[in-house]
Simulated assay, not measured.
Amino acid sequence: MVHLIAGFPSLQGFTEAARALRAGGAEILEIQIPFSDPTADGPDITRASEAALRGGFKVRDIFKYLRAARQAGFRRILVMTYANIPYRYGIKKYVSDLQKAGVEGLIVPDLPLEDEESFYQLARQKHIAPVPVGVVGMPARRLKLLEPYHKLYISLRGGTTGTATRISAETQKFLSQLSVRHEVYGGFGITSARQVKALAPFVHAVVVGSYFTRTLQEAGRANAPIYQSVAGALRKLL
């Protein structure tokens, strides 16, 4: 599962990156709608989101990027953003419009499970999967709140994205137990083939985001072709 930011570096650049990722074997694409005040993003994704917003990205532009992702070959697409955006858009319309666009699931990392104001219920009614976010090692009382959800995004550690993550035996055990009942996507700080190999047996999808954002940033600075840059970065993970 790979993560790209709508609006970064451009629609054409996004499309080239998506094509390279799909051709290289990525199965699920998580598209982030950029937001000006993120809480879970590390510096690379934050800078990329800021660049997208400076470039004029608007929330309704997400549908252009969804079409581009499908044209690139992705059939499984999730949309991630922060709660302010769907609530300002109107949660009923947000869920409905993204369901009509063929989105499989919705991720809102700063939406509290105890006070989600019917967002997840509305998603289920539209046959679109709500994907709550948990963290490795979260206490049993918090895990109980995740039980009703089929798909889970599990952060491999606290903090923000981008910093390297150690895949410990405790992490593997935690994920394997969750994976019995849920479809688990595990991410945060995946930057090497060693990490992918250590994580893959214990989740349904390894999530890689900041790594590819940095690849796009480096390609831009070097004026290098995006498709080849992203394809090469993906091969290093396999």
Rank of each mutant, 00 (worst) to 15 (best):
H3M: 08
S10C: 05
L11D: 11
R19M: 12
A20T: 09
L21I: 13
R22W: 02
A26K: 02
A26V: 14
I31T: 06
Q32H: 05
I33A: 11
P34M: 03
P34I: 06
S36D: 08
T39S: 09
G42Q: 00
P43V: 07
P43K: 05
P43I: 04
A48G: 08
E50L: 09
A51Q: 12
R54G: 01
R54Q: 15
V59A: 02
K64C: 00
Y65N: 00
L66H: 10
L66G: 05
L66K: 04
R70E: 15
Q71F: 04
G73I: 13
I77Y: 05
I77A: 07
I77P: 06
Y82A: 07
P86E: 09
Y87P: 06
R88V: 12
Y89A: 04
I91R: 13
K93W: 03
K93D: 15
V95L: 07
V95I: 11
D97Y: 02
L98H: 03
A101M: 05
G102S: 03
L106C: 01
P109G: 06
D110S: 04
P112W: 04
E114I: 14
S118W: 11
F119K: 01
Y120D: 10
L122K: 09
R124P: 00
R124M: 11
Q125S: 13
K126D: 15
P130Q: 01
P130D: 08
P132R: 07
V135D: 08
V135W: 05
V135G: 15
V136L: 12
G137N: 10
R141P: 04
L143R: 13
L146A: 07
E147I: 10
E147P: 07
Y149C: 11
H150I: 04
K151W: 15
K151D: 15
Y153F: 13
Y153R: 03
L156Q: 09
L156F: 02
G158S: 14
G159C: 06
G159H: 01
T161A: 05
G162T: 06
T163F: 00
R166Q: 15
I167Y: 01
S168V: 11
A169L: 14
A169Y: 12
F174T: 10
Q177F: 10
Q177C: 04
L178N: 01
R181L: 13
E183M: 09
Y185W: 09
G186A: 13
A193N: 11
Q195H: 12
V196T: 10
V196Y: 01
A200W: 04
A200S: 14
F202W: 14
V206F: 00
V207Q: 03
F212L: 08
R214C: 08
R214S: 13
L216N: 05
E218D: 15
G220F: 13
G220C: 12
A224R: 13
Q228L: 07
A231C: 03
